[in-house]
Design a protein around this nucleic acid. Structure first.
Ligand SMILES: [Mn+2]
Ligand SMILES: [Mn+2]
Ligand SMILES: [Mn+2]
Ligand SMILES: [Mn+2]
Lengths: 217, 217
DNA sequence: TAAATTTGTTAGACACAACTAACAATTTTA
DNA sequence: TAAAATTGTTAGTTGTGTCTAACAAATTTA
């Protein structure tokens, strides 16, 4: 069994591999807010447990075993978030920090029950896919809203960042998953975008459009 | 904030004070399956944090602060057990080891929500009182079934031991909270008791009758 | 290519929470 | 009350996961 610290490293490596392909000690250090020497020595430990491949000064990669263990923690995280929103009435902005703790609970029964009560959901409340119980995850190939062009009609399928502040900002603008919108204009100078949806017309910065994933309608 | 280890010590001291009044290093050591020198040094740490009173070779007691912190962990434990049984469909024999982990989750919102969804329950699935959010717990002074006499009619109000094995044993005999029974006979030699309830007539040992709490009807 | 910057490792320290071995105090029993 | 048993402490060790200081390698910039 892996420790709490090990589990958090695995999850972070998984996310960084997803974003950038390979992972440097430096990146992992910043992501986890843990100093490089600590990360470096943890990588030796994880390599020893055959969860990552790692040689000094070379990039880090999850092994297949490591990838599956990371995916199963992410599964617990996302099932929990979905359960908290759908069955307990929490807002999508409230659940991440609770799931960050519950993802480490050791109880296959608990997560199997959540899964069952939720009807075996494919996505979490932020639109991210929930890995199956063997660790398989269907990758989402949606595009960033920031990459869309004027005149396009799109539907929000996921958000990239799940911080309380970002999601509360979206709540304030009544922006949520499934929302359909038209791109009115795109400011070339700073990438800010004017969109319309329902009765709203809003201008949002590229900081926001970079964190929203959409599908073309 | 207290560590996981500290929280488990506080809970154990609380339970032992409840059972025996005062707590010896030895008892705590056995209860937690942690060697005495470790317990001894932890007591210094907890005394330093003003959670217990402790002097070498003297019995351990929780301070008022320690008592409240212990009660709040027990509150989280029992709310969780109740939630798992009432809202998720677990059996009363399945929930203790899950609650043992979830009791350490730091999220007032999560437990407030459980409490609300459950309608602010006073008792957990094993009949134990749930402390309120200020750490107050109404003690319930039921008597052990083993102390009852032949001919008495009683109702089961709580079970003392919440191990999977004990509760599964009770399930097998269709014994549950709220069950009313008549004491047919009591064997003086070994304390075994013959009881009848519904269509059942069973003889149960004193190991069992010691762990069942009842009220007189 | 040489210097500067960034990235990473090694070495040594520390806090926490566990352990064993040895010894000391307290309580029970003879 | 003396011996034995039980209970508890002290001292020193271990493993985990963090840190800082110092140094080394790799990459970027001049
Ligand atoms: Mn999340
Ligand atoms: Mn986590
Ligand atoms: Mn319990
Ligand atoms: Mn616990």
């Amino acid at each position: 069994m892996n420790t709490l610290a090990e589990e958090n490293y695995l999850k972070a490596i998984f996310a960084l591999m997803d974003e950038n392909g390979e992972v440097m000690v430096n990146e992992l250090s910043q992501r986890l807010a843990i100093k490089m020497p600590t990360v470096s020595s943890m990588m030796k430990k994880l390599a020893n447990k055959n969860l990552v491949t790692y040689e000094s000064y070379k990039p880090i990669r999850l092994t297949e075993k490591g990838r599956v263990e990371a995916a199963l923690i992410i599964r617990k995280h996302r099932l929990t978030e979905m359960y908290l929103v759908e069955k307990m009435g929490f807002g999508w902005e409230e659940v991440h920090h609770i799931a960050e703790q519950i993802e480490h609970i050791q109880s296959p029964e608990l997560f199997a029950k959540m899964d069952e009560l939720l009807g075996f959901p494919a996505l979490d409340p932020h639109g991210s896919p929930i890995p199956d119980s063997s660790g398989k995850m269907i990758p989402r190939e949606y595009q960033k809203l920031s990459h869309c062009k004027t005149g396009e009609k799109v539907k929000i399928t996921a958000v990239v960042n799940t911080s309380h502040e970002f999601l509360t900002f979206l709540n304030g603008k009544q922006i949520h998953l499934g929302l359909e919108m038209i791109i009115h204009s795109l400011e070339p100078f700073d990438g800010s975008m004017t969109i319309s949806y329902k009765e709203n017309k809003e201008t949002i910065s590229s900081v926001v459009t970079d964190r929203i994933l959409v599908e073309q309608l």
